[in-house]
Write a protein that binds this DNA or RNA. Sequence first.
DNA 1: GGTGTTTATCGTCAAAGAGACGACTATGAT
DNA 2: ATCATAGTCGTCTCTTTGACGATAAACACC
Lengths: 251, 251
Amino acid sequence: MIYPMSRYDPSAFPPFAVTVDLVLLTVREHELCALLVRRGEPPFQGYWALPGGFVRPGEGLGEAASRELAEETGLRAHASPGQVMAGAHLEQLATYGHPQRDPRMRVVSVAHLALAPDLPTPKPGGDARGARWAPVSELLGPGRTDREPLAFDHELILADGVERARSKIEYSALATAFCPEEFTVGELRRVYEAVWGVVLDPRNFHRKVTGTPGFLVPSGGTTTRQGGRPAQLFKAGGATVLNPPMLRPES
Amino acid sequence: MIYPMSRYDPSAFPPFAVTVDLVLLTVREHELCALLVRRGEPPFQGYWALPGGFVRPGEGLGEAASRELAEETGLRAHASPGQVMAGAHLEQLATYGHPQRDPRMRVVSVAHLALAPDLPTPKPGGDARGARWAPVSELLGPGRTDREPLAFDHELILADGVERARSKIEYSALATAFCPEEFTVGELRRVYEAVWGVVLDPRNFHRKVTGTPGFLVPSGGTTTRQGGRPAQLFKAGGATVLNPPMLRPES
DNA sequence: GGTGTTTATCGTCAAAGAGACGACTATGAT
DNA sequence: ATCATAGTCGTCTCTTTGACGATAAACACC
């Protein structure tokens, strides 16, 4: 027995600060982008960072993430089991707790992943600090030694979030979270192309998504906003898992 | 600006206790089992609970989980990116932080998922408390209103861990973590059958796993420990993701 | 030794799905 | 009118799957 009798007494153990950080992704101009905010205080003052903040005393983790999301974007989302509401999807990503990840004290960050459609305001307001949508390729591209690093371990968190999003749109209907309420098959295809960084065959893609039951439901209208022949409009169907999955072309 | 200037000052925010809990799964006698320990102190004194404990001051989350695993089973594992070592796989599962999940104070638990081969000792020693392998079906089965509940929110954590394991053996080579270093195709098939709770066609399964490059590598020998015709022995190959995945029969 | 039982392994066949790509349609731009 | 742009429907082939027959090599029993 190498443990003190107080092993089960939480007050006997050193306190941690708990934060939530948000990997908020969207697709803008055919590129996968993440929301960054500029830090106004040390440490990492002036660095770009993922939006986030401390979990409040009476607040659950998902609640805190949902609140942060609303503060940054005005979007509403529920963090429960990957629920989509008011256009935003929010789910827990992973927790980062390296002892030295914050130089001031022991901080454990519960990162969340949020997927949102392209938002009307390029730089979401509601906060005096600077904020921007940064193309993920500029932040994580290999060999980009010249880029300015993100604060803390946020580059790692971002990479994990992007990887989660990339793999999750394979076997779930989550890609629709990047689209407005009504969208065309072509718009959905461009989401996949942007997130995966590939080009997909429009005909096979069309056959696949329209043939997967519950993925898309026709909403009746058509649109011509992409140019070319008018395209049928769809809404996200009730399906959450895709069986069989969308296949990411092997690179 | 609804935030205090101390928004970025961790010491200005209320402290949390941070624990790691372990969903440690194995396959025993064709059944998926989880390791439970009996609580010796309030709250939930006498209840069965997932093994776990507080994260120490200088310790990372994965480190803490790895230490707990070693304390409970003697197994070594590294939590880094799903690395398998000395027969055990360990990865972060999810974090649970409902404000009232521990009646004493605010505790955030970073749950980890561990997969191990059937261990020699039925009741792992190293700890004075009681411990047992409980079949998952007895803990989570639907409609079992008579079963004794687990401590805290551990039933939820266990359910999430089991679901993660079930889905992860579909598209990764993780099922081999349930097997000893050398194993036969039939033994691997029984792992899938136990975890998924289905029966699989031995011929199609054999074709599938031996045809997936990097999944299995022949180790040269054969064994007859299962009775019947001697079976070829394999070791886990280097592959971590299976493409195409194993398909769970639709129920 | 036979015979049955058990498990492993190979083969065959039909159905489903994926990738490649031709053809046609309906819009706007020039 | 012609062209460019996107969308949609089909066709063909190849791969993979699921169902299942057949054979092989051990052991248990008579």
